[in-house]
Nucleic acid binder design. Structure first.
Length: 106
DNA sequence: CTAATGACGACAC
DNA sequence: CGTGTCGCCATTA
């Protein structure tokens, strides 16, 4: 799912969880991403494009250092704060992406 | 089995 | 709009 996030866009844990049908499992999304951390298979995953509901790049302090913020800025994401992106402008809603809409995640 | 915890979210103040 | 609470689900102690 995270791998489908378009360049220059971000999405939130809740959005992903909601789209997968697990609206109340936002934490699980973070947990899932955490699992990819030491998993070489997902090493290339654009996890820096996943932020929390407030647009805060919380994972930054947790494990990737400044990598996440730097890559986001590099992609044209506008930060409204030290570690907060302009979620209103760059939020990516999977249900509004025609290329992604047809994927099945039952 | 119970308690605590987390890359979180919604809601009440 | 910052802070406090409670809910969530999987994992771990």
């Amino acid at each position: 799912m995270v791998a489908q996030i378009p360049y220059g866009r971000v999405t939130t844990y809740g959005t992903i969880a909601a789209y997968l049908g697990a609206k109340r499992s936002a934490r699980m999304v973070g947990w899932a991403l955490n699992a990819t951390r030491d998993n070489p298979e997902y090493g290339h995953l654009p996890c820096h494009r996943v932020v929390n509901r407030n647009g805060e790049v919380t994972g930054e302090r947790y494990f990737m250092g400044d990598i996440m913020c730097e890559r986001l800025k590099q992609e044209g994401i506008v930060f409204i704060d030290e570690n907060t992106v302009d979620l209103v402008k760059f939020i990516w809603d999977p249900s509004r992406d025609s290329n992604f809409k047809n994927e099945s995640f039952d």
